[in-house]
Design a protein around this nucleic acid. Sequence first.
DNA 1: CAAATACATAAGCACATACTTATATGATTT
DNA 2: AAATCATATAAGTATGTGCTTATGTATTTG
Lengths: 104, 104
Amino acid sequence: MSETEFFKALADPTRRAVFERLADGEMNATDLRQGFDLSQPAMSQHLAVLRTAGLIAEQKHGRNVLYRINPDGVARIHQWLSRYNAFWPSRVDDLKQLLKEMDQ
Amino acid sequence: MSETEFFKALADPTRRAVFERLADGEMNATDLRQGFDLSQPAMSQHLAVLRTAGLIAEQKHGRNVLYRINPDGVARIHQWLSRYNAFWPSRVDDLKQLLKEMDQ
DNA sequence: CAAATACATAAGCACATACTTATATGATTT
DNA sequence: AAATCATATAAGTATGTGCTTATGTATTTG
């Protein structure tokens, strides 16, 4: 769950796509393969990388494993990124707007 | 300046350290090498990766090249990350606090 | 209980990456 | 103009990564 691990995990386009699909809701590995031209082991390995990086969590349900986004991982990237807030002042207004929307 | 490029760029610990050093202010390649056990070409190559990823910008000053953080790059990561705001609700309050502080 | 299913692990291979040394390029100094 | 300095580029090499096929391990189904 180091910074290097989660940046490496997201540096792969396939893994980002998997991560983004999980943002829509939890899913098992077989369902996740839909639409990806990827062997079962390849998907399994990608999921292992995302899990080791702390970006996703897994929960066994019988012989299935449900994967979902791990909020702590997302928060961690934000934490890292917050050191550079001073460099994107033009985005602050957008963010204020977002927070306002989240309140409603 | 693709997403893959900037995640790959930040996936290397040395490049993250260089990027973080630049957050303290612009610097040329020679000064940046201070404290790093790294050859001159290695640093030059790292800077090229960060620049191609859109994370830093460069400005020639005679025979020196000043490097600095590119705000657009930082903003870009934020933009990507904003898709996952729903997953870190506990951080929203911290962020509101931060924005309040930035207003003062 | 035997077959099927869901997933993980192992081993091997092609390609990418991060480093090195050597050399090139352009600006500055003496 | 020659030497020096700041940086980039080229080429080679060791290690890492992402894929494959083959196999292992639970769990469920018939």
